[in-house]
Design a protein around this nucleic acid. Structure first.
Lengths: 234, 234
DNA sequence: AAGGCTACTACACGCGCGTGTAGCCGTCGA
DNA sequence: TCGACGGCTACACGCGCGTGTAGTAGCCTT
């Protein structure tokens, strides 16, 4: 009962190392983060990190497993307490639950790791879509899992690209103001289709006609016909 | 005229180094990529890389600048040839134009770099939204730049998380089949609002009432009350 | 023809990293 | 009481990296 506020004093050394790794990996990325730095943050020697986790890679995998379990628990909780029925709280809850681990997750996913975490979130998205699909008259274009995966990826774009988003929004997306502004924008996007039904039908028609042909490949090539001559922007 | 197909033989050594860097940075990330490896791919000595670009960091910035210029050109082209009016070809064209640089861009953006490239894409998104907003009766919730930034981020989620998307979709998103499937799913998502208008209004109302308060923080804390006891998976 | 500048190479330096190894100390079971 | 085991530390190794430096070949200017 005394552990759920993050008091690093009371935690096991192993847990403290894991938490420190989560933070260092999230802040600096896997490559730039050092075992020595993690050990220092955890208040232990660097040898102990190796003793508990074996290698840097294994430490990363332990972090992934920890988050995967956390997401799995979140998944269960969402299933029991059915707050579903088309509520954006799903993604808000998810972001809040990941909390400080959001940055780690963002980096790990962008680097191609933490696959079980992603898959867990896709499973969550499928749950959500299962309910949302019920209120929908027309059949979906693609199977649920694919739509869920794309939706999860889109939701993850926010923490992954938070730096660029913050810069373009003028506020830190992790601050309360930024969060509010972001949620507002997301609400707008999620409640307004970017494509009208007939435009979508036309696009889908065109899509099926030439499967996977990239549009206007030659005009694309024309874009890069000249080389740059000296990069004079400091 | 002879340069727009990528014949690495005819290119300047500087350009060849830049291309090799784009590829190495994109494939392995900035940290794992080595100057020596880039030099070998470019067919030059590692010293020449330093001679032309000064440092690894400067090489990265040169890559960013190159892509920023490319996106800027794409931007101009889209402005003149008005293929606008709510066409998804915008993002398809963008992805095709970036082409092989997509992976570099994805990694660079995820690592927080290539800011001008992102901003250029936001500018492009604003153009698109300017036209789309015309067909819209109700006023948008958030200003255009913010919505554009979020939209760009979402579009970029695909190349950034391509590995996880491919795994969940069962096909490589960069293959023609994967591209088709992805486009279909995107079409579905973009043409169907995830939120009904009244649900959006309710959510927006709730959002304005408690600005930025994370939902149910205590239940979130309850999720991580127990530590894991040994990671015995795999 | 001479000078110099630029593209380019070969080689060495030094630092920081992950990783190995040896050993200490508290605890717990016999 | 004693031995052993696991948590934990200190220290050293070696490798790969970015970076510096010295030097060579070719072209362009005067």
């Amino acid at each position: 009962m005394t552990t759920h506020p993050p008091d690093p004093e009371d935690l096991t050394a192993r847990a403290r190392i894991r938490d420190a790794a989560l933070r260092h990996f999230g802040e600096h990325g896997f490559e730039r983060a050092t075992i020595r730095g993690i050990a220092e943050t955890a208040g232990v020697s660097s040898g102990l990190v190796r003793h508990h986790f074996g290698s840097k890679q294994a430490l990363r995998e332990a972090c992934d497993a920890y988050l995967a379990k956390l997401v799995g628990r979140l998944n269960d909780q969402a299933r029991t307490a059915d707050l579903a029925g088309g509520d954006v709280n799903y993604v808000a809850l998810g972001r809040a639950a990941l909390g400080e681990h959001q940055q780690y997750l963002a980096r790990a996913l962008a680097e191609g790791w933490a696959a079980p975490v992603f898959d867990g979130m896709v499973a969550m998205g499928e749950q959500w879509l299962a309910e949302a699909d019920r209120d929908r008259p027309d059949p979906p274009f693609a199977e649920r899992r694919v739509r869920a995966a794309v939706g999860v990826a889109m939701a993850l774009a926010v923490p992954i690209l938070h730096r660029h988003l913050s810069r373009n929004m003028g506020v830190d997306v992790f601050s309360p103001e930024g969060d509010h502004l972001l949620a507002t924008a997301l609400l707008d996007i999620y409640s307004h289709p970017m494509l009208s039904p007939d435009a979508a039908a036309a696009a889908r028609d065109a899509l099926d006609r030439h499967r996977g042909t990239p549009p206007r490949a030659e005009s694309v090539a024309a874009l890069r016909d000249d080389d740059e001559e000296g990069g004079g922007d400091d």
